[in-house]
Amino acid sequence: MADVIALFLDTLSFTLTLLLVTLGLVVIFGMMNVINMAHGEFFLLGAYVVVVVTGAGGSFWLALVLAPLVLAFIGFALEWLVIRHIYHRFIDTILATWGISIALKQAITIMFGPGLQSVPNPLPGTIDLAGIEYPLYRLFIMAMGLLLAAGTYLVFFRTPIGLTARGVIANRAMSASLGINTRRLDWATFAFGAALAGFAGAVMAPIMSVDPQMGVGFLVPSFLAVLVGGVNSLVGALLGSALIGGTSTGLSAYLSQADTQILVFLLAMMVIRFFPNGLTGGKR
């Protein structure tokens, strides 16, 4: 029984963590049709904001607030410098953000060195869940994933800002002719997506080995989660995260990490092959 609960908790934890990391990607991909290959580095930068702030004696919680702000600014700057020139060239957005990712990763390596940085766990200790001692901070991460996903959903589907954003996605020219400043919405969306990635990185920093390669490891599962679930779709992102997270956790109980990764990737590729629009078909 305890094993089942542990497995369930691990699956839930992986799913919500992946959802947390994926959110920024979904926003930028779904809303702007930009494949942001630099997403992993935005995530990475969020973690390094925590490294810098806690290293300077600041509190972790302060860093958690600062990280999304810093990333929003970086996202804004990159949108203005690079992305706005290539919205109509889909393939080039992949390449340009890939170049950004190379440059950002190297900039981090130059500033902090290639080595590991450690971040103290702000919520040490465990909590008793139905007979399982579960780390408190993992629960915090899961709560954050859930909270942020729900928040993003509400913003996009229950507020005027979200309505405007969805209107621009549906018909850009018409929205502009109704007086909506589509340019402002573009950079705001990109900055918001970057901020989400930065927040995810900051939240994950205490339980990960923070080094310049940490972004790549999350990039592929996140993309797979988005594509498996269906682009343009927050529900799809949840579904995709659950599938990737669930199979990963389930398989890793029996297989080595590498074999698990291979199997999960292959499965995800097959799903994308047979459902190019994702399992939700791209609706919501």
């Binding site: 991909f29 393939i91 993309f223 590498a258 291979i262 590729m269």
Partner: peptide, 25 residues
């Protein structure tokens, strides 16, 4: 229905990852 655009990019990227992990193993 051929894969294109994002799907093609990510699937080939994934294939490369899988190949590399498999080669290591």
């Amino acid at each position: 229905r051929a894969l294109a655009g994002a799907q093609l990019g990510i699937v080939t990227l994934c294939a490369a990852f899988v190949a590399e992990i498999a080669a290591r193993r």
